[in-house]
Structure formats: structure tokens, C-alpha cells
């Protein structure tokens, strides 16, 4: 088989295949670990076993918390209504710092655990104050 300008073309192909396979090569070298957000802060552990729940079901929070807090923000700031009634009829104060972060007082081991894995950097903390870091594990 004779190639014309084979040197250049093969070089191009090697670069192409290398780029396409780079996730595999780097992935094998460094597989990384899946995130493990911890919900064992002192605040959550103080609660009764049956009450250890998020404001909405876990599956919903996992996929939709970003949309959810965005709608909280709108409800609180645009409609001036700072009380949220959840799917179980419980009334909850709308606040990022005083509600979410009161239970999840371990931002680094909880929010950031997932966010670093996904390389998302919510800009909320440019203004909102990050609570003092508390860890569980008692």
C-alpha cells in the first residue's frame, strides 16, 4: 500500500486518535473517586431518626436542588413570600444560609463533594456567607 504524503497524514491521524482516546488513557491512569456527600452533621444527628429528611425527598433534591433553590430565591425576593410549604405540608423558612446550610453545615463535605466532582462552582458564595464548617461522624 502506497500512501501519498503519508508522513503528514499519519501524523494527523495519530493526533486525532490520541485526542479521541485521551479520556481513556488519563482515566486509566487516574480513575478518581465518586463523591460521597455526608449528611451526618451535628444538626442532622440531633433530629429524631424519622425526621432526618431534607426539605423535599432525597431523589428530588439530588437532581433538582439547583432549580429548587433558584425558585426559593424568586419566591423570597420577587414575591416577598419567605415561607415554603413542602410536599408534606410542613412550613419551612426560605433561606439559603439559615435553612439549607443550618442542616448541611458541612459545605466542604457535602455541597463541595459533588460540585468538585462535577467541576461546578456555584457563584452563590460570592455574596452569601458560608457557615462555619461542622463535621459529623460521632
Amino acid at each position: 500500500m502506497k500512501l501519498y504524503d503519508g508522513g503528514k497524514i499519519i501524523t494527523g491521524l495519530v493526533i486525532f486518535v490520541g485526542l479521541m482516546l485521551s479520556p481513556f488513557i488519563l482515566g486509566m491512569a487516574k480513575p478518581g473517586e465518586k463523591p460521597d456527600p455526608k449528611t451526618d452533621t451535628p444538626e442532622i444527628q440531633e433530629m429524631e431518626e424519622k425526621d432526618r429528611k431534607c426539605v423535599e425527598p432525597k431523589e428530588f433534591m439530588r437532581t433538582s436542588h439547583m432549580v429548587f433553590i433558584d425558585s426559593w430565591r424568586d419566591q423570597a425576593l420577587r414575591d416577598g413570600d419567605r415561607v415554603y410549604e413542602n410536599s408534606e405540608g410542613k412550613e419551612i423558612d426560605i433561606s439559603l444560609q439559615n435553612t439549607c446550610m443550618k442542616c448541611h453545615s458541612n459545605k466542604k463535605k457535602f455541597c463541595d463533594e459533588c460540585h468538585n466532582y462535577m467541576a461546578v462552582k456555584p457563584y452563590c458564595w460570592d455574596c452569601h456567607i458560608v457557615p462555619e464548617e461542622k463535621e459529623g461522624g460521632v
Binding site: Y4, D5, G6, L13, V17
Partner: peptide, 12 residues
């Protein structure tokens, strides 16, 4: 890759 190699075989 095969497609490009196929093209590379065509004389210029």
C-alpha cells in the same frame, strides 16, 4: 482512520 487512509492512497 480507514477513510482517511483510503484518501491517502490516491495519488496527487
Amino acid at each position: 482512520t480507514l477513510k482517511v487512509l483510503g484518501w491517502a492512497k490516491v495519488p496527487v
